[in-house]
Structure formats: C-alpha cells, structure tokens
Amino acid sequence: MTTNQYAEPPPRVTLGRRLSTFFYRHPRVGLAVLLAAPVGWLVVGYLGSLFVLLLASFWDTNPFTSEVVHNYTLDNFRRIIEQDVYREVAWRTVRMAALVTVADAVLAFPIAYYMARFASTRTRNLLVVAVFMPLSASYLVKAYAWRTILSDSGAINWGLGPFGLTFDGYSTTGLWLVFTYLWLPFMILPIYAGLERIPQSLLEASADLGGRSLRTFYRVILPLTFPAVVAGSIFTFSLTLGDYIAPDLITSQQFIGTVIYDQRGTNLPVAAAFTLVPIGVMIIYLLVARRLKAFEAL
C-alpha cells in the first residue's frame, strides 16, 4: 500500500451528516428538537387543560338546559365564597386529608424503619412485595370491599358484636380508615428510601458521642428522614383531597371531589371554579413541602 493513510478522501456529505454537523454547531437547536415533543405534551396536555379549567370557571350556564354559555362572569366564585356549604365541604376535605396523612405517617414509619434497618434481605424483599401488592388490585375492588367490611353486618361489627359494641362504618371515621388503608404504600416507600439513605457511620458517630438509641433516633434519624415523610405526605394529602369515589361509597357527606363530580354535568363552571380550591391548597402545600426540602427526598 503506497497511499498515505492520512490522505483518505473527504467523507461524502450525506444529509444525515449535514444534520449532525448542524446540530453540533447549534447545540441549543438540537436540544429544542429533542425536547419539543415531551415539553409540548406537558404544555398542551397539562398546563393547557389547567388553563381551560381556569377559563371555564368564568363561564356561565343556561339555567334551563345546563348548557355552558360563553359569557364571562364572576358568579361562580361569588357562589363558592358566599354559600356556606362550599366552605364547609372544603374545610371538611382538607381536615380529612390532614388526618389521613398523619395516620399514614404514624403507621408507615415503623414499617419502613423495620424494612430499612432490621429486616434481612429476604424479609425486606417480602415486605416490599407485601406493601405494594394492594396497589396491583383495582381501586374500586378495594373501595367496595371496605364498604362490605364497614357495613352494619360487616366484619368490623361482627368482631365488635361479642363485646356489645357497634361501629357506624358509613361515617367520616369509616372513610378515614379507608383512605388510610388506600394510600399507605405511598407513604411507606419514600420513608423507606429516606431511611436507606442515612449512612451507618452517622449512627455510629452518634453512639460514639454518647447518644443512646432513643436520642439517636430523635436527633439524627428523625430529622434526616423528615423530608421523606413530607414527600410521602404530598401523595397521601393530594390523593385524599381529590378523591370522589370512596367518599361516595362510604359516607353520606360531601367532599370536594363529590361536589365537583355532581356539579360537572349540571353546572360545569361552578365545578371548574370549585376545582381551583384544591389546586390552591396543593400549591400552598407544595411550597411548604419545598421549604422542608421534601423535593430532594422524592
């Protein structure tokens, strides 16, 4: 071979090559093309629907046919603010969401703690499966099952019967139980992940400095996992805030979700306006959660 290996003929300028050169020279354009689809989806699908929701809350309805009329009005907001029932329902729902979150945190922490710190690999794997198993069953099946359990002739009252006690299952307390059950896995996982992330050396350091187990727990473990608890609470809180099926099946009381569901067919703008209440509550919640560094624990 006599030809110089460095004197290779220049590569043919194909379209693909030209494109890649272009993107190499204009990295921002390359990035834009790459992200156009997902960002477009986010903007149109997520923000767009929120925008329509906001718009719809200013619309009016025909009082006879319930058809949406595109006249702009503030009546929907006036109604939500002036009528006590909307405030009561909103307050009731937020209270429920808070109570469910607290109950889930109290239940989830020991389970997650055991999984992360004490369980053997085998037990831990079993527990992870056990925690997530209920998530594979349909939400409706679980809600209807609870309806049967909470019934006057259901399992709970059957168990209480011999002691002369009865439990009114179709009540706010009953609903609280159902929500606590339904969302528990969403609390366990972030706490478990948070506990896993604490290096063993920190606990040893605490012990070396004279910290006993209880003190180590309060001064080291709890502060370090708190962001994870807040992260889990985002799930339990928001899922409770928006749910309408369990409240409808278990209680005779109205919650934010059931009011929106009932109004959506007959007065869509009022439903849209009321939707802004849980959105507002969640925005505040997320701002607080960010302050508490929950986003880093997600």
Binding site: T61, P63, F64, T65, S66, R79, Q83, V85, Y86, E88, Q253, Q254, V259, D262, Q263, T266, N267, V270
Partner: peptide, 15 residues
C-alpha cells in the same frame, strides 16, 4: 325556580 336553582339547592341540602 330553575333547574340550576334546584341543583344548587341540592348541594346545600347534602351539606
């Protein structure tokens, strides 16, 4: 009273 009034009242009745 219109349909809308009925629906609105129903939300209040349910409480």
């Amino acid at each position: 009273k219109t349909q809308e009034d009925w629906v609105n009242a129903w939300t209040e009745i349910r409480g």
